[in-house]
Nucleic acid binder design. Structure first.
Length: 136
DNA sequence: GCCAACGTTGGC
DNA sequence: GCCAACGTTGGC
């Protein structure tokens, strides 16, 4: 089981859209590093859902529902998509400002490489984020 | 809206 | 294969 972080601009596709759709195709990846991460995802893996630009916070988690397949929106065989499935909305979102203040999360791709839209996270990072976001 | 960081493209 | 120019992303 691996853990990931997916970034989405809520003006394009937000958590609210996902709550309506339940399952969605994660398309539009046009970056090799992000693409390579997509191809490593396995069904059932967990991904945190981050809102970029507006909110700049982690709002919930999704599960990988279908592993990488050819992006139907292009003939170009280099690009892939995955399907994700709504899993759990967090009780409290975690903002980028809070992440930057958390010693355990300093190596998160979000902090180190802000432009990458699909990135792996470690189990330790996942556990830390999950526990902060689901505290009573 | 600005700007830093980074990716891509194309000339040589 | 290098590098300048340009485009895009995303935080602020």
């Amino acid at each position: 089981m691996n853990y990931w972080l997916l970034k989405s601009d809520p003006e394009t596709y937000s958590w609210v859209n996902l709550e309506k759709d339940k399952i969605t195709m994660w398309d539009g990846i046009r970056n090799y590093q992000a693409r390579n991460n997509l191809k490593l995802m396995k069904k059932g893996d967990i991904a945190l859902f981050y809102h970029s630009n507006l909110g700049t916070d982690i709002v919930g988690q999704v599960k990988i529902h279908k592993e990488a397949y050819q992006d139907p929106s292009t003939e170009d065989e280099r690009w892939f998509v995955i399907d994700i499935k709504l899993d759990k909305k967090f009780k409290k979102s975690l903002t980028l400002a809070e992440i930057k203040q958390n010693n355990l999360l300093q190596n998160l791709g979000l902090v180190k490489q802000s432009r990458l839209s699909v990135m792996p996270i470690t189990l330790e990072e996942y556990n830390e984020i999950y526990s902060i976001c689901n505290k009573k």
